[in-house]
Structures are given as structure tokens and as C-alpha cells.
Simulated assay, not measured.
Amino acid sequence: MKLLVLGGTHHVGRAVVETALERGDDVSTLNRGLSRAPAPGVRALLADRTDPEAVRRALDGQEWDAVIDTWAWAPRVVRDTARLLSGRVGHYGYVSSRGVHRWPWPAGADEQAPLVDGDPGSTDDTDYAAAKRGGELAVLEYSPEAALLARAGMILGPYEDVGRIPWWLRRMEKGGRVLAPAPAETPLQYIDVRDLAAWLLRSAERGLSGAFTTTGPPGAITLGDLLSTALEVTGCDTELVWAEPELLLRHGLPLGMEFGLRLPDGSVPSGMHDADVSAAQAEGLTTRPLRETLADTWTWLQAEGDPAPRADAPSPDTWLDAAAEQRLLDHLAH
């Protein structure tokens, strides 16, 4: 395909670019050119997406078979770009989020679960759910028959800049006894960023449209599987010490929030890790083994170092206060 990736230097965008190059696609990217040098073979178009005139100049006179858009902030930016690309791309893939569903999420929810309100013309990016829904509506406004809305769950794997798995791997690297949020049997859903990228590209090639929940199958792994496998791939001398949520809350430790296992008040949300993904699976979404995801993330971290965190992501430092952790570990040792 002749492919345009809006962004292409961080997390999902980077994985899409690398996967597309492996497939032999003709890849262009549009970004400010400030973060990373373009990958070999990529045609780099430079513009700040918040400047519609600069974007128009960068895209002027060109057409693509497909575009992949990972924008996560003000919906107006998506609308401006979708308007410029209207009639010039055959497929518009928008990386959205399960967050567009109205809270609280029902158990076993599929694509038909209620949605939050969104405004495609909004310049507000403070409400992530509303911004993503606004982005969806912006794409549908200009490419209704060609729009693919990929409502992703928890995205892991190399290049993660939210800080979930990189934080845990670095914590385990330090060794010693490490608190973990019980129960270990808690089920988790996630998608490897490269599996998401591959599905987006295959779907673009096929001209798939519509909204799909894109995450791993429910019940496939547990929190214990995730953390014990992360410990194994680091090869570090670390011991997991499981602590009940109520105990963590009393000690001011919000561990578990990074995986969506509990809310700031300590309550346990429903529907977070049991989404119905049968529609995406029927359209070819597959997931690689957990060990491969974590081992490749560890290899990337060692090679490139910790990524700069996303501006809209909570600071990983909020997940664990070292002194509070040690007090609780001492308490549990007696």
C-alpha cells in the first residue's frame, strides 16, 4: 500500500511504521520532526498538526491508499486533517480507545456499549474519553464509508510511553522484595502494539470499516502471569510480595491503578478486562505470547533507555512511594 502515518515516531505510530516497512508498504509520515529521525525508507513530511495551513502545504497534491491516525488530544485536529484528506485516501484508520464507552463499563461489553459524548470541533484535550470520541466523530464526518475505529484496550510492548511495563521492569531490575497488588489471579486483557499495528494494516489493505474493540482475549492471562513473566525475562533476583488492595490503600500505595484494577478511591471497576473481542478476532486480530511481548520490551529498554513519558499519562512515580513500600514490606514480614 501507499500509506500515510500521522505521527509515526512514538509507541503505536512507530510500530505501525516498522510493521508497514516490513510488509513492503510505501510509507510516508507526517509529524513535527522533533522526536526521532525517520526510519530508513520513510518519506518524512513535516508539519505541526495543530497548524492546519502547515498540514495542508505538507499534504498538498498527494494521495494515499490508507492513513493511520493515532492522535489522542483535541478532536479539532483530527477533523482538520480528515477534512484535508477527504477524497484523497481510500481508508482512514483511527486508533481510538475503549475509553470512549460510557462509565461504568458493563461486564463483557462489546462495540454496542453506550458511548460518551464527543465534539469533533472541540479544542479541549483535558477529557481523554471525550477527546477520543470526538476524534472518532471527526473521522466519520469526512470518511464515513472508509473509517476504521480501533478501540484499543491496554497497549503493551516495545515503545510503550505510558509507563506500565517499563516501570515494572525497571522496578524488578533493582532487585529485592517488590510489592505486587493482589490477587495474583486477577484476569487482564492487553494487546501487543505490534499485533495492533499488523491488524490495522491488514484491515486497511482489505478496506475494513466500522468500530472494533481491539485488545486480547478475556481470561487469557492473569496479573500473576504478567508479573512473574516480567520477572523471568529480566533475570533479576527479585521476590514478588503480594498485598491485598485494602492494605495497599491504607498505606497510600495505588499499585494496581496502572493496570486499571482499581480506582483512586480503592473500588474495583467492572468491565475493564473482560471485553468481548469476538468481532475483531473474526476480522483477523491475533495476539502473540505474553513472554515475547515482555522480553522484547525489556530488550528495547536496555537498548534505548526509558522513553520520555506522554504528557497525558500519569507519572509512574505516583504508583509507588519507596518509603511507604518499605514500611508495608516490613509490616508483612512480621
Rank of each mutant, 00 (worst) to 15 (best):
T186N: 05
Y159V: 04
T70M: 03
L328H: 06
T286F: 03
R79G: 10
F212E: 07
S97M: 12
L156Q: 04
L208A: 02
L301D: 06
P40A: 13
G87Q: 05
H331F: 14
G99S: 15
M257C: 05
L196H: 09
H251F: 14
W71N: 03
P269W: 10
W300L: 02
R98Q: 15
L329V: 03
D60Y: 06
N31W: 11
A243P: 02
L208R: 05
G108L: 07
V241T: 08
M257R: 15
D276N: 15
E246I: 03
E111D: 10
L148K: 03
L208N: 01
G8H: 08
P166K: 02
A82D: 12
A275W: 12
L223S: 03
E53Q: 13
R36Y: 11
T222N: 06
T214G: 02
P104Q: 06
T19K: 08
T9E: 08
Q62G: 00
L248K: 09
L21H: 07
R43L: 08
T286P: 01
G61R: 10
W168C: 03
A138R: 03
D274S: 08
A37I: 06
L188M: 13
T126K: 12
G99F: 12
A295D: 10
V78C: 06
A279C: 07
L46D: 01
R14S: 01
T81Y: 04
P245M: 01
S203G: 13
R79I: 00
W71H: 14
R14F: 01
T70A: 14
L179H: 11
E325T: 08
P245Y: 00
E145T: 11
A282Y: 04
T126L: 10
L227G: 06
T229L: 08
A130R: 14
D237E: 15
D296T: 12
Q302R: 15
E53D: 13
L156A: 09
T123I: 06
P40D: 11
L21I: 04
D80H: 09
T186A: 13
T29H: 10
D48M: 06
D321N: 14
I68M: 10
G271R: 01
A182H: 09
L30I: 05
L85E: 03
D306H: 11
L227K: 06
H273K: 10
A303E: 15
L137C: 04
E136D: 15
L140D: 13
R32V: 07
L231Q: 14
E22F: 00
T123S: 12
S270T: 15
A82C: 11
V100Q: 02
A113V: 07
Q62I: 00
G134K: 05
L226I: 04
A308L: 14
V55D: 05
D321G: 05
L247C: 09
L285M: 03
V268H: 06
D127Q: 06
P289Y: 05
T19N: 02
M1Q: 13
S122V: 12
R291P: 01
P106E: 00
A184K: 07
Y190P: 02
G61A: 13
P75W: 09
T214L: 12
A138F: 02
G252W: 09
P218M: 09
L179K: 11
P104L: 04
S315C: 04
P269F: 12
